[in-house]
Amino acid sequence: MTMNSNQPDTQQTTPALADTTAARGLPPRRISVAPMMDWTDRHCRVFHRHITRHTWLYTEMVTTGALIHGDVERHLNFSQAEHPVALQLGGSEPEDLAKSAKLGQQWGYDEINLNCGCPSERVQKGAFGACLMNEPQLVADCVKAMRDAVDIDVTVKHRIGIGRSETYGFVRDFVGTVAEAGCATFIVHARNAILEGLSPKENREIPPLKPEFAYQLKREFPQLEIIINGGIKTLEEIDVHLQQVDGVMLGREAYHNPWLMADFDARYYGDDALPKSRLDVLQAMADYAREQLARYGHGAAAGGGLRLNSITRHMLGLMAGMPGARAFRQTLSDSKKLAAGDPDLLLQAYTRTQARAA
């Protein structure tokens, strides 16, 4: 792998804070994939890593209660191939978050991220997620407790506001207060969170996007790392945002159209190494599935263990926009073939795709 020092014009040009990632031998957070419940599990992240070497990957949100009282290995185990990878925590008790952050560092995560953006009713009942934006000093206390417990970066992902009020001053004051506790990286989902009357899905679509709020945060806090998130779908949109902020976080577009990420290493990290083909990725994932099934047992046969669908379900969008994409999805969604637990199904899906495209 080689890194091209003459990076393209699409690189962000805004001032950046002292780069703690470089000091630890990690790429900058120029591009990242958002934490998404039920989607960005460890199998999904391995798949994404085979497409892009440098993009930061984030876990699904893990609550402090799940780590303190539950099965730590089930929640924190991951493949070393996933680096750089961040653990997103959900919680509002500084002591519990400190304990959980320490566990995250012990398991090898590269960053701890605090969820201050999820609007779901379940999360609100736990008094964390987006509702924490109403208590910036508590968030600051949580950040300080975690920073005192770990040596890796502690970051915050948040919205620009709560409810129907859309004033820039709200998010500015939130960021200012939390930054005083030592948080240097803020991932800004550039729309409000409506805590009543909208589902989590509607909260990702109905509140209007206001990227200018993220841009203004970068202008007012040039020493901070500001990463924008929300509704970003194309390379061209990424390029525009990187002229104003330090990084871009993609959400569902990365999941539904993962091959978009194939351009990230060269375009945003100056890596001129030959990228993998779709077939390369499928072969690598077939090998990964084979190793995982050997380790945990095939669920359909062992009455537990791992089902092949746990891996393949994340890959349905790999051929999006290509001839034969429907045949690819149909093959990987065939319940009888999945029940057989043969990882070569991935290669069979590709072969069928090529036959349809011919």
Rank of each mutant, 00 (worst) to 15 (best):
V33I: 09
D173V: 04
G70S: 06
A340M: 06
A320P: 03
A16I: 13
A98R: 11
Y215Q: 08
L26Y: 12
L26N: 07
M1T: 10
S79R: 13
Q348H: 08
M285S: 00
I160A: 07
E196G: 10
E180N: 12
P200Y: 09
A184K: 15
T55K: 11
K201V: 00
C44V: 07
I162M: 10
K125A: 12
A179G: 06
Q243Y: 03
K99E: 12
V178L: 05
Q105I: 02
V85C: 15
D239Y: 13
R29H: 08
E196V: 14
I160M: 06
P15L: 06
A301E: 08
Q292I: 14
W39F: 10
I31S: 06
R267G: 02
G231V: 03
A294L: 12
N134F: 12
P343W: 02
F174L: 03
A357G: 07
D265L: 08
C116Y: 00
A34R: 10
S100L: 07
E82I: 14
C183F: 12
R252E: 08
D110F: 14
H54P: 01
V178D: 00
E236Y: 13
S79H: 14
V178Y: 06
P27E: 09
K336L: 10
A262D: 04
T13G: 14
G299I: 08
E220M: 00
